[in-house]
Amino acid sequence: MCLGVPGKVLEVNDMTALVDFWGVRKQVLLHTVDSPVAPGDYVLVHVGFAIRRIPTGQIEETLAFYETLLRTAEEDLMAADVQEEMGAGEET
């Protein structure tokens, strides 16, 4: 319930964005984001809400961590948390 997960913005529609998390696409809410986002940006998402636009150039390191987690995903608490956070966005 407490992690943020980074994802890539594909489309922006007023207060929602279509975000890609490693192939899983979700509608994410933008009410809470710190600065305007556009397609191609990365955002940190928590409980279905974007809380930070991650500056370009710093995204690689952020993604690497989650990739490590998801690669060894079976029965891992932290991977489960990441997946739960990804589950929080609305299905498209």
Partner: peptide, 27 residues
């Protein structure tokens, strides 16, 4: 998974919906 889902449930339901909200400031 999200407070937003509680809102969606309330939109469809006739009954009262209470979201038991936990978490730190982030949430």
């Amino acid at each position: 998974y999200s407070p937003w889902e509680a809102l969606q449930i309330a939109r469809k339901a006739e009954r009262e919906v209470v979201f038991f909200a936990t978490g730190f400031e982030t949430t």
